[in-house]
Structure formats: structure tokens, C-alpha cells
Design a protein around this nucleic acid. Sequence first.
DNA 1: ACTTTGATTTAGTCCAAGCTAAACTTGCTT
DNA 2: AAGCAAGTTTAGCTTGGACTAAATCAAAGT
Lengths: 228, 228
Amino acid sequence: MSALLADVPLSRSVEDYLKAIYHLSSQGGFATTSDIAAMLLVAPPSVSGMIRRLSDSGLIEHVPYRGVQLTNQGRRAALRMIRRHRVLELYLTERLHYDWDGVHDEAERLEHAVSDELIDRMAKALGNPRYDPHGAPIPTPGGEIEETVLVPLAEAELGAPYELRQVDTEDPARLRYLAEHGLTPGKGVTVTDRQPFNGPVTLTLVPGGQQVIGRELALLLLCKRTDA
Amino acid sequence: MSALLADVPLSRSVEDYLKAIYHLSSQGGFATTSDIAAMLLVAPPSVSGMIRRLSDSGLIEHVPYRGVQLTNQGRRAALRMIRRHRVLELYLTERLHYDWDGVHDEAERLEHAVSDELIDRMAKALGNPRYDPHGAPIPTPGGEIEETVLVPLAEAELGAPYELRQVDTEDPARLRYLAEHGLTPGKGVTVTDRQPFNGPVTLTLVPGGQQVIGRELALLLLCKRTDA
DNA sequence: ACTTTGATTTAGTCCAAGCTAAACTTGCTT
DNA sequence: AAGCAAGTTTAGCTTGGACTAAATCAAAGT
């Protein structure tokens, strides 16, 4: 750790790497060089180079040939970016009429340019919301993030009542399809049938009726059980 | 000219240079290397390097040892940045309660990250305004900009009625002072006395009363005569 | 017409961040 | 236990954009 708590401004690339590492190591464990490379669409040696710079500045821990993890300092920086991204997505959809499937790219560029002050002003204008348009939790200015255990609809218990909480994709085509079929955060949902061999899932929406979706989509729909 | 009309995305630096050159050559004539360097706070040789790149890509014309001017392509790009900057300044003040003296830096960073689409959405949300918070004209999406001949208050005719149209500074301290003294675009103003040797200017504000300001500030207050 | 001075450009260096090609680890499979 | 494939790292190159030091030019003064 060389940069002892000096809150140096980070480059655009550094911010992108930290976010990628956060997402890849969020289920515990290491983010690997090749996973980071795939997520950021760069060549693996570029990642190795950046890993050196990041661990020199104390933002990550690197175990050679194993992967990397964020330090507390790195996690703070990553959560700051995620807060920015999610506040931006919500602001753009709520106040400037962006569709939830088109907002990702704009937020992706803006998150590197906005000040903390602007983000806080946007959040305040929105009433300090807790979730972005896809249902993902927005970290607080202090870097706290809500951690709820959610289950993909594809693995929900048959017949049990769930609430659809979060849609785990940024792909515009999938998002558009889901919105057209009423599959948005907040809806009640029950799985009534599931075919074997990665087959389709039949579900009942509340409000709404019965429909069938493929397993790939059902894995993206994160739910919370609502009885108990 | 190498990039024949291919609308390649420009880097942050390139965008800053084009804007600086636009402002420095706006009164006709050339922008010099050292003026650009002073405006962007970089060393003159850095400017020489960038001038090569810019003129290689057809954005400027360079006359060695004289200076540079924008080509049509360069002017279009510069006006796009100025539109972005001014729409952002107005949006931030109108919708997110920024003060007119604090909004410049935020807009300066955002202007490189926003899409044309976002700018147009912001402009639409504001009713397609024609002036930014300092009274500067906002270029249209097509790259047209209003050109009005304005006279600095320091040179206004004694006793004649003027309208204060534009405040030609981004310096927060000066802006704050001006706002506190009611010197904002839209006000009516008459110069009632002017002391020699760059002395103070006495003026009458409508609405508002009489006051005295220094010549330095009076040079920043751009006015239009309102009798005909 | 020469010289001086200030501005400009060239030469050469550095850093971030990307790339390819080659070398090296790791862990799995014979 | 040896060898191989996949993944990782190193070596070395490129580009944009900054810098300093040195060279060059132009305009003004003697």
C-alpha cells in the first residue's frame, strides 16, 4: 500500500477496472485476469498491466496466477462508482424520460465525469431513492450497500409467492422484452411449472396473467419470497 | 485534410483545444500558441504538438509562427462543445439549484461525457432556451450561434439606456459579487458617470438604484442599447 | 543592417494504457 | 510422475498528450 489514504483522483480506466473487479468478486473469491479482460473487452496482458498499477496504489490485493480482490480503499472507490451509475440511471429515466433499456450507456460515460455533489443533488431531487430502475440497490454516500439474498426465478419454489425485485442485465433487447411482458421490479410472481433440461418456466404475474419464458431470462429475474 | 468528413469521436483534450481556439479567434484573427497555452494551463510545446495533430485531422489551419484558425469542421465541433457547456450550465442551475458561480466546473467536466441526445433532452426540458445563465447565446443543434454586437458597460454612452445582456466571466468570486449587486442579465442600466484613468463607473440599475463599480468589472458587463 | 528579445518550434523524455508474441504456472489427465 | 492445455505474466512496441531544454524565427530597436 503506497498511497496512504490520499484520495487521489482516479482515471477513467482505473474506475472501470475497479467496478469490474467489484462485480466479479462480489460472490466472494477472486476476480481473474481473463474474466476482467472479458468484461472490459481488453486483452489479458492489458489487465496484468493494470493489476500492477492498482495493487501498487493499494486498491487491490493480487495473488499471482490466482486473481485479485479489492482492498477496503478499492471497495470504497468501486461503490462510489456504482452509486454514481445507479443514481444517474434513475435520474435519467425519471427526469429526462430515458427508457430503462437505453439508459445504461449514458450513465456509463457520465459516471466518470460527475462530481459527488451533483450525484447527491440528483439523489436529493429524487427523494434519496434506494433502488435504481432495474431494482439494484443504490449505495449510500458513505459506501453502504443493501445486501438482500435474492433467488433467480429459474430456481424459485413451485407455487410459492415471490416478489420480483431486480432485473440482472443491462442488455437493451432483453430489458425491452421484459418490460413489454410486465416483468418489472415490484411485481408479484409465482412459478407454476418448470420443464426439465433447461426448459421454459411458466409463471403467473400479479397483477397480470400467466406466461412462459425461457430459462435464460428466468435466471435474470431476481426475486424475494413473500410468505413466511 | 485527412479525415474527410468522417465524424470520428474526439478526445477530451482535443475538445478543450478546439473550444479554446474558438474563443481566442472569435474576434477574427489567429489564436496564438502562447494564448492557447495560457488558457489551457499547459506548456507552449504541448500546444505545438497538439496543433500538429489538429491540423493533420483537418480541424484547424496552422500558419507557422502566426497562429491557428478553425476550419469549418473544427468550428462545428467547437460549437457543439459550447452548446453542451451552456445547456449544461442552464440545466444545472435551473433544475438542480446550482449557483451561477459554481456551475462552470461541473459543466466543464460533463461536456465531454454527455451524448447529443442527453443535451437535446435537457434543452427540451428547459423549453429550448436561447441563453445560458450568464446570458451567453446557446448554439443550436445545427451549429448556429446568435451574434449580437454588445458593448462593455465601461464603454457605454453616458446617460443612454442599455440592457445588461451578458456577463463575460466564469470566475466564481466576480460572479458572486455581481449577483449580490443585482448585476444580472436582463437588467436595465444607465451609466451616469465615469472617472478618468481607468477609474470607477457610476451606474443606475432598473430595477435598483445607483452604484459604483470598478472598470475591471464594467468591462465584463456586456450591454445592448435599448433606445433605437 | 545587426542585434536582441520574445515567441515558436523541434528534439527527446515520460507515463498511462492499450496491443502482440513469447515465456511461464497451474492443475488436470494420462 | 510427466506432459499438456489453459490461463497468466513478461517483454517489447505503439499512441496520445504532457514536459524540459535547445534551437529557430520574427519583429522591433539601435
